[in-house]
Design a protein around this nucleic acid. Structure first.
Lengths: 103, 103
DNA sequence: GGTTCACATCACTGGTCGCTGATGTGACAG
DNA sequence: CTGTCACATCAGCGACCAGTGATGTGAACC
């Protein structure tokens, strides 16, 4: 079942730049410098978005000297995929059985 | 692969009231009156949100006399679930193989 | 035709959010 | 220890958005 917590999680991902970051991190663990180079966004802006992703528990950080590596947490995305999967399945059976509330 | 179109789709769902509507419609096809009763939101507000969902192609309408039935389109949610599934799988292998770009 | 009901659209506004420049901090190099 | 680099934080401003009341529309009932 979807909760309000899921809303917040989805809201965090539902941003062009953040989705871009998430996609990049899904393929490769990167540090901020790389993300600046890849996205072309300002460092401050990226730092703000990374903060949001961190606080939402979507990514985790690993300091390495002056650098900070950002890694995507697969279980969060997996949980999201599962949630939407269940929702899709429910919707599918609703449509196929023509479940409808009368007015 | 995630595109900017997906961003818009996710953004539309990433709203408390709209996610509530989507969840309700996943279980049962309803018309606006039911949604007003279920959510407690104003009719105008709901109509606005339903418009957004309709324009995003997430729901479809079926007029029935004075009433308008709203039904969730399962294929949209399925596509979303599949997209996140692929993303999660990519992230999983990235973490397990320790794929990381050097600074 | 007039009324009521279900629903959509419009126009406005208050609050919020995103981007930015400035600045702080901690780590390495020399 | 001084400068530089990587990154975080802060404060402020402008743009956008969400909710609302007013209003439009079209269908049913009398």
């Amino acid at each position: 079942m979807l909760t309000s917590a899921d809303t917040e999680l989805i809201r965090v991902i539902a941003d062009p730049l953040r989705l871009r970051i998430v996609t990049l991190l899904a393929h490769e663990t990167l540090c901020t410098t790389h993300l600046v180079a890849e996205t072309g966004a300002r460092q401050t802006n990226l730092s703000n978005h990374l903060r949001v992703l961190r606080e939402a528990g979507i990514v985790e950080t690993e300091p390495c000297g002056r650098f900070t590596y950002y890694a995507l947490k697969p279980e969060v995305i997996e949980a999201l995929a599962a949630t939407f999967g269940e929702l899709a399945e429910t919707a599918r059976t609703t449509v196929e059985t023509g479940r409808k509330r009368v007015c």
